[in-house]
Simulated assay, not measured.
Amino acid sequence: MRGLGAILAVVFVSACGGAGGPSPAAATSAGPSATAAPSPVTVKFGQVGSVSDAAIFIADAKGYFKEQAITLEAVPFTSAALMVAPLGTNEIQAGGGAPSAGLYNAVDRGVQLRIVADKGSLTSGHGYEAVIVRKALADKVKSAKDMKGLKISIAARDIVPEYSLDQYLRSGGLTVKDVEVVPLAFPDMIPALASGAIDVALPTEPTATRILDAGTGVLLTRTDTVVPGEQTAVILYSEKFAQDKDAATRFMVAYLKGARYFNDAFDKGDATKKQDVIDIVAKGTKLDPALLARVIFPGIDPNGKLSVDSLIAAQQYFVTKGSQTKAIDMSKIVDASFADEAVKRLGGAYK
């Protein structure tokens, strides 16, 4: 009996984790880690440096990219059209700007890239693009129907703002064929209106507010009333970066956190966040915070949702005009999977 008792004692001690059994700490350390640290990655982002880059500026300034082990390296461009070739070769991994006939023609030629998220749109109250007439003509030019033969300036031909102009002119029974389109960089529109070199301008912010401040132009309308919800700017991924699903999704998580902070500030009316955003964008664009406090910012979807219908409508304009060789299948270039996954990781849709 004494021998049997000794055996039972040993069994009991072993079952309770005593001599000969692994300690709880040892058992825990032997298992896999709960969450593997993300692999660090540097993302070169093509950037025009406009107010529609607000969510990117915020995500960088607030450390959201750093949270995702991403080092953001901003690469300056004067337009999104110039980003197409470097995106195609993965010289830059991502970028943002206006859709254009040039972008779609490049895709048709075999350049591989993807449109992955909204970066700026003309949602209600976010008409950051304006139609402004020269002050000397304000008594005669009240709407689109009065613009036949006038010199009208946009930033470039065959980009989405040209489609906006055409839609505005159609409200008065005209088209772009009935006016003289004068491409000018936004800052150059200010002296051009003042001197009478152009009659009407379609600037985005902050140029629109600068013209109105100067008193050389009169606001006719904001284009959120002309083309409501128009997709004016998008986030682009190179094909190679898109194939790195983990890094591409982490980038989107950080970006959407920036977009949500932006929406807290401008759509939900958080005054503290609004001032913070203004300061962040001022630093990123090198613009005066006092000026930015008065401009109208674009809509930036907090879930990254794109208006595919708007992209298709602008594309059809380019095709009809002849600047785009043929329509491309948007389902082959628009990829919402990164934004969808990022929304899940952020706990669901922003409301």
Rank of each mutant, 00 (worst) to 15 (best):
G217V: 09
D178A: 07
T209E: 15
Y64A: 00
L8R: 15
G21M: 15
Q47M: 08
T78C: 10
E230D: 14
L8T: 09
A36P: 06
D146C: 10
V227I: 11
L256S: 07
S331E: 13
R114P: 06
A314D: 06
K140Y: 04
A25T: 13
Q167F: 03
K351H: 08
E205C: 12
T272H: 08
K268R: 15
P191G: 09
S307Y: 02
L4T: 07
L212H: 08
T285R: 06
T71R: 06
A349G: 11
V11T: 07
G46D: 03
T225F: 11
A156C: 04
A254T: 07
A349T: 10
E239I: 02
F318D: 06
F77T: 05
A339V: 03
G102I: 04
A208G: 03
Y104F: 14
P22R: 08
K240I: 04
T216W: 02
D158Q: 02
P187R: 06
R157Y: 00
N90Q: 05
K44E: 10
R2H: 13
A74S: 14
G347E: 11
D199H: 05
F318E: 04
L219D: 08
A80M: 04
E180H: 10
A85P: 00
R2T: 14
A81P: 01
R157L: 03
K273W: 13
A248S: 06
R294H: 09
V11P: 14
Q93Y: 02
I92M: 09
L291C: 13
L287R: 07
K326F: 02
L150S: 04
D276L: 02
V48P: 05
A36V: 13
R210F: 13
D178R: 13
F65W: 11
A313Q: 12
H126Y: 09
V111I: 14
P24R: 11
V116Q: 01
K326M: 03
R294Y: 09
A69G: 15
D279V: 12
G127R: 07
E230L: 13
Y350N: 06
Q93M: 03
R294I: 07
A156G: 00
P76Y: 11
D270Q: 15
I152P: 03
D139P: 10
G96Q: 13
F266R: 00
L212R: 12
V176E: 01
N303S: 02
L103E: 10
S195Q: 09
L219V: 14
A144L: 12
D118M: 12
D188W: 05
A26G: 15
V160M: 12
A117E: 00
A192I: 09
T123G: 14
V277D: 12
A94C: 07
R250A: 02
G269P: 15
D301Y: 01
